[in-house]
Simulated scan of single mutants.
Amino acid sequence: MKRDIKHIKTVSEFLKTFGLEEPNNPFISILHPLAILKSKSLLEHDYILDFYTITLKDNTCSHFLGKKKFNFEEGELAFTKPNQVLNISSIDQLNTSKGWVLLFHSDLLKSTPLFNKLSDYRFFDYSINQGISLSTNEQKRVTECVNFLKNEIMLTFDKHSSVVISSILEVMLNLCNRFFERQFDKKAIEDNYIVSKIDAFLKLYYENNLFSEKGVPEVNQIATYVNLSPNYLSNILKKETGKNTKDYINYFILEKSKSLLLNKQDYSISELAFKLGFNYPHYFSRFFKSKTGKTPLEYRKQEY
């Protein structure tokens, strides 16, 4: 039986869906895994989240966000990034879980250096269907970061909050990177997973100024790059991310435009539009507003 897919755009919406209290900070929340499941009916759906999740799950933890069910013998960390198709699995043993779930939206970080580094943390890749195994000491270290974050997000949000939270989160992610590189061969992951290759293609295409020189890449170009037919490629992306190839390209452009709008170089809207492959600025403005509900100028002026 085909499962319904629910699209959840914000951390606040996620907590509301699962019958939890509004977060003190709307962009980030830390939950006990047992708090997530309020209704068995929630297991009947898959989910697409527009934010990142990190889950620490030990062998007694009963609920878990992920692509597949995991076999946790000790403790493991697992990661999801925006636009993956996820499910919440449930097992027995409900009483002694020591895990946690961290949810955070990239908008929290967009005025910080970490915003542009998130794509460099390969453990967020959708294709890694295995968690990172942690020793007891490693679990303790990463949980200390989470507790530090928890204390910070309990405070009133002020102009320093994003920077402080970003700094703590970056330390945590760098620890995860150490654990990840110890366990996985990064090159093998990048060589074997289609979405990783597409992400790398789009990033390189942008860095080489090909958006401005040649326009937005065509679906056929990307299909050729990953050695798949266009239809088969779209089927894979639809299954794994909820988007076809064209939608996935547009998602990359949208996230890059958000970053550029807040860049200290202060690109004009026209410069930014051409940089992202739009022949006319008003086409870019129309695209951006259709995706965010705001014009590029409105997005640039908003304060967090």
Rank of each mutant, 00 (worst) to 15 (best):
I8V: 14
T10I: 06
S12G: 12
S12H: 11
E13I: 00
E13C: 00
F14H: 13
L15M: 08
L15Y: 00
L15I: 01
L15S: 00
K16T: 14
T17M: 13
T17H: 14
F18A: 07
F18I: 05
L20W: 09
E22I: 04
P23W: 07
N25W: 04
F27T: 08
I28Y: 03
S29K: 10
S29R: 08
I30Y: 01
I30R: 03
I30S: 01
I30A: 02
L31A: 05
L34P: 00
L37G: 04
K38P: 01
K38M: 02
K38W: 02
K40H: 13
L42S: 15
H45S: 15
D46I: 02
Y47I: 00
L49H: 03
L49F: 13
L49R: 04
D50F: 07
D50W: 07
F51I: 01
F51N: 01
F51W: 02
Y52W: 09
I54W: 02
L56P: 03
N59V: 02
N59C: 09
T60G: 01
T60P: 01
T60R: 07
C61Q: 10
C61D: 11
H63A: 09
H63S: 11
F64A: 10
F64L: 13
L65G: 02
G66E: 02
G66W: 00
G66F: 00
K67D: 11
K67W: 08
K68I: 12
K69D: 07
F70N: 08
N71V: 07
F72C: 07
E73G: 06
E73H: 10
E74C: 11
E74F: 13
E74S: 15
G75V: 05
E76S: 15
A78Q: 06
A78F: 14
F79Q: 03
T80Y: 03
T80S: 15
T80E: 05
N83T: 13
Q84I: 05
Q84T: 13
V85G: 04
L86G: 06
N87T: 14
I88A: 09
D92M: 14
D92G: 15
Q93K: 15
Q93S: 15
L94I: 12
N95I: 15
T96I: 10
T96E: 15
K98N: 12
K98P: 02
G99H: 07
G99E: 07
G99F: 07
W100D: 02
V101F: 03
V101L: 12
L102G: 04
L102Q: 07
L103F: 09
L103R: 04
L103Y: 03
S106D: 10
D107E: 14
L109R: 02
K110M: 12
K110A: 05
K110E: 14
K110T: 05
S111V: 10
T112F: 00
P113D: 12
P113Q: 13
